[in-house]
Design a binder for these strands. Structure first.
Lengths: 194, 194
DNA sequence: AAAAAAATACCGACTGGTCGGTTTGTTTTA
DNA sequence: TAAAACAAACCGACCAGTCGGTATTTTTTT
């Protein structure tokens, strides 16, 4: 019983990720997901209370992987970490291409729902705090020029979000990987002490 | 005949803007818009071929106002223009708060439609070109340091989009007007020749 | 200028279909 | 054999768009 149940659940998740990212959150219907997963609607609602619940589970899973990758870089120096992020650009851009639209859509749709909003804003604020602390540490270490860590954090996150969004709007409009690298060079150059 | 017709049409547009920005593109139904405008569904479809057509008309109208405001600043020097943009932040943020979600939602929903994609990507590319030219002019004038105008343009637009998006996701999370001002100061400082 | 004709603007019930979710009944598993 | 897992028919709300017909305005005719 447990064996089959887990198999079904992971099939639902797998199909959901696939269909949410290709069709978007709204356009990917529960029926569609069930059909793709090769199960019935009854099975779906046996495992997940609602479509929203399923998405929240996906969100949670996604956040966990981010957390663990952050955890893994915990012992490095601040400039090293920034360098590592820079090197991860191709992967980040590819991941964003697939995932960002569905998260954006979900956020927009749920921005009027207090509970959902909370679920998405809490990790966002957590990452912002983490990033701010990182920059503060860099300033204290003496590797960064004296900036307001709060503002610098917003600025860096903004740049990342904006680049990702632009690459989404117009994938063929530029060599986004190159632009991302050069942009972060410009940013880091104005941040790093020489 | 013309008098009444124009009146009806502008009522539809007025209600559409109101409901699209408060409820979002999908959630604002045609019935809803008709009811708010005080007209029938028949009248709606007499004036607009579809819900999408109506939105495209709104988009067009919006772009026209942007174009004319750009036109108005055509004789100023480059640093003056950046300063002016900085001063317009409160207005920009407020406008984005109301309009950006509905445009984002529409774009996400329709991004797989060639025709719609074209209608949104063309003005985007136009503005990018304009902005790039502006920076290039600034560099040639000697007021900016030697940067690649293409990259700098992407960077600036990214920052703006990212800030707008963040302020949308978490309006209470920061004093966004202040963050926007300080961020652009940081950016312009690293761009301006001293 | 008044009547007739034509064109335009408008109404609202209706259609066909979608979607998230429920219910009822069956199979599988422990 | 009882509980968990699943299947499939079903429900009600909703929604974009249609259509036959009516009201209003403009144009043409007399």
């Amino acid at each position: 019983m447990q064996q089959r149940s887990e198999e079904t659940q992971s099939q639902i998740v797998k199909s959901a990720i696939k269909l949410f990212s290709t069709h978007g959150y709204t356009a990917a219907s529960v029926d569609m997901i069930c059909k793709d997963a090769g199960i019935s609607k009854g099975a779906f609602y046996h495992h997940f209370g609602s479509k929203q619940t399923l998405f929240l589970a996906l969100l949670d899973q996604w956040l966990t992987t981010i957390d663990s990758s952050i955890e893994a870089a915990h012992h490095k120096t601040v400039p090293e970490m920034f360098l590592q992020i820079t090197e991860a650009y191709p992967y980040i851009i590819k991941t964003a291409e697939e995932g960002l639209p569905m998260f954006l859509e979900f956020w927009l749709q749920a921005s009027r729902d207090k509970k959902i909003w909370q679920a998405s804003i809490t990790p966002y604020r957590r990452y912002h705090k983490y990033f701010t602390a990182l920059i503060k540490k860099g300033v204290e270490e003496g590797s960064f020029v004296e900036v307001d860590p709060e503002t610098a954090s917003r600025l860096i996150v903004s740049t990342a979000m904006g680049l990702l969004l632009q690459s989404l709007l117009d994938p063929e409009g530029a060599n986004w990987e190159k632009v991302a690298k050069e942009s972060s060079d410009m940013l880091v150059n104005s941040l790093l002490k020489k």
